[in-house]
């Protein structure tokens, strides 16, 4: 991480996501990540910023195990959940309760335990009354919260968000990010949130700036925001 700038960095807690010198390319000409390194401390809400094509989504897919890095290492010892940009591509069952229960099959729980987990996850995202609602009848913001509830029900310690507010209106966008902040604060969750909206930086504990396939700045979100706003001007 010698090549990145630290901006008002807080003392590090134990990292739950550790990416070390990761490189990834689709072909020899299309290099996406080149020596990318970052660490996300436990129980914190961090954001990953960058322009289109900077490698944010690819990095998240590498972290989720959907892609394999060409070089470098990724250490994530905890159970990880993933929230995609478009929740319609993530929610697979016809109604809310059944969709959250989809992720619990591999744990071989009893029906009572499944119901308990689903209700507690729905309670965490304030959607307990929507248990029986068909997915197609939900709003975009509600769908994203259901996707988050799916990860919470699986007892994921880390949740990664791939631009979850990209399809939401400004009100729903800030409501969702505030809710994730509260979730991280009230439970022992760690969140890594990909975005390119600077106003969302007000809610996180720390942020990374990704450029040209590597982290070029990291640390205090407000300082990073000021720096980016100054660059824009």
């Amino acid at each position: 991480m010698s090549h990145s700038i630290n901006i008002g960095l807080k003392p590090d807690k134990t990292p739950v996501i550790r990416v070390n010198d990761v490189g990834f390319s689709w072909s020899s000409e299309a290099i996406v990540l080149d020596g990318c390194s970052l660490e996300v401390p436990q129980g914190e809400f961090w954001m990953l910023l960058g322009n289109n094509g900077s490698g944010k989504s690819t990095l998240l897919r590498l972290l989720a195990g959907l892609l394999v890095p060409d070089r470098g290492s990724i250490v994530m010892p905890y159970k990880t959940g993933f929230v995609f940009q478009n929740p319609d591509r993530q929610l697979v069952m016809p109604t809310v309760g059944a969709d959250i229960a989809f992720g619990l099959v591999s744990e071989h729980l009893s029906l009572v335990q499944v119901k308990e987990r689903v209700r507690s996850a729905l309670d965490a995202v304030n959607l307990l009354d929507l248990e029986r609602r068909p997915i197609h009848a939900l709003s975009g913001g509600q769908k994203q919260r259901i996707a988050i509830a799916g990860a919470i029900a699986r007892n994921c310690e880390v949740i990664m968000f791939d631009e979850p507010t990209a399809l939401l209106d400004p009100d729903s966008q800030l409501e969702l990010v505030a809710q994730v902040k509260n979730l991280v604060k009230n439970s022992n969750l760690t969140a890594l949130w990909v975005t390119h909206r600077l106003e969302e930086l007000d809610y996180c504990d720390g942020a990374f700036l990704l450029e040209g396939g590597k982290v070029v700045a990291k640390g205090d979100p407000q300082s990073l925001k000021q720096r980016l706003l100054a660059t824009e001007k």
Binding site: A64, L66, F82, F84, N86, R89, Q90, V92, F102, G103, L104, V105, S106, G150, R154
Partner: peptide, 12 residues
Amino acid sequence: QIAVAMDVRGFT
């Protein structure tokens, strides 16, 4: 994309 999401969500 749904197939990828199913994989990520613990499809057996």
